[in-house]
Design a protein around this nucleic acid. Sequence first.
DNA 1: CGTAACTTAAACACTTTTCGTTAACTTTGC
DNA 2: GCAAAGTTAACGAAAAGTGTTTAAGTTACG
Lengths: 134, 134
Amino acid sequence: MKDGLLTERQMEVLRYRKQGLTQQQIADIISTSKANVCTIEKSAMENIRRAKETLEFLYTLDATHLCTIPSGTDLFNVPSIIFGEAEKINIKVKYDTISLINRLRESRAQACKARVVCEDIIVYITDQGELYFG
Amino acid sequence: MKDGLLTERQMEVLRYRKQGLTQQQIADIISTSKANVCTIEKSAMENIRRAKETLEFLYTLDATHLCTIPSGTDLFNVPSIIFGEAEKINIKVKYDTISLINRLRESRAQACKARVVCEDIIVYITDQGELYFG
DNA sequence: CGTAACTTAAACACTTTTCGTTAACTTTGC
DNA sequence: GCAAAGTTAACGAAAAGTGTTTAAGTTACG
């Protein structure tokens, strides 16, 4: 009831991994099989994924879907796409071109490789012109 | 691969609540008791709390606790507090005064009302001087 | 005061998650 | 090619979470 999503076991494994230990080494330390370490680590990552998704939902709760930026889009084309879509529903985005790109890169770093978007990105917008990237 | 932490039922209730409906109204719509709506809403909030805590663990995995900015602090006093604490442990923060404030507002928008911090904010720092706000 | 809104607790059936095993499979680096 | 590292699948037992109900308890407010 108190803690986060991760069990003690899962946090333990993640901490050891962060230190660079192999699954086998961890298995020896916590007295189990490497296969088990693997599944514990995997379910830990899955829980982290779900935690992120949960907070995304929270953001989108008061935002409406704006558009989707397809994978492969040049980063520098993103602002005009978003501005155009926002205009259609008469909301003014509260970011200029540069800060919009920075905001996108902050919130979805792994979806941005160099100058290109490498994952589909869902764009949400609030009535106040605030943006969230799903 | 499942979605986030929240069940369909929980998201349903949160959406209706966001629209301003009472628990009784929601109970009528989804055909159950208002007590049940209450527990569903409560466990939804609990799940959101756990999601946040989970991501906080992720940040603290490679960061050390620096300090806590108490609710009520003037935003413009935050940088000097953080710089002072970082100095104590001999780490140089990689942000100047202005960008630190911007980074804080980006990452914890709802904790910043006008010029004041309205929630306790835990500050983490990595060896490289990167900051995270819990 | 009284009523609507909300919270809480105990109990129950049900589903999901977790940790563990074994054994086979794939990937990676030398 | 070999060995170490990592992954996957199938299965089981224990633990945790979910949605309900019922019944009793607050809180807020005109």
